[in-house]
Amino acid sequence: MIYFFSCIAVGLCLIMILPLYRCLMGPTVLDRLVGVNAIGSKTVVLLLLIGYLYERVDMFVDIALAYAFLNFVAVLAASRYFHKRKGLYEESFME
């Protein structure tokens, strides 16, 4: 079962490559933000799986909880910061 957990963890790491592409190549800043949010939500589960691999789940649960909070706050702060930057986007229809 531990072997299966490590396979799942490797699979999650491989899945993370796709949002990473969106982070690097995204046409707008908000696309990058979406990618960062997706990577963060996968990392929460990855931390729990690492806890099972090291047999210290009680410790890693706290880390995962803190990471979920941090991810949420980061996305909220970044989107609040960027919503006034009109010049960043190539097309703008609201003037």
């Binding site: 908000l30 979920a68 996305v75 909220l76 989107s79 609040r80 006034k84 003037e95």
Partner: peptide
């Protein structure tokens, strides 16, 4: 917590996009 926070984050990003005029 994720069930509470994820719609809020999504809504915040949508709001930023609407205000920026995408």
């Amino acid at each position: 917590f994720v069930f509470l926070a994820s719609p809020t984050a999504t809504h915040s990003i949508v709001d930023a996009g609407m205000r920026a005029g995408l």
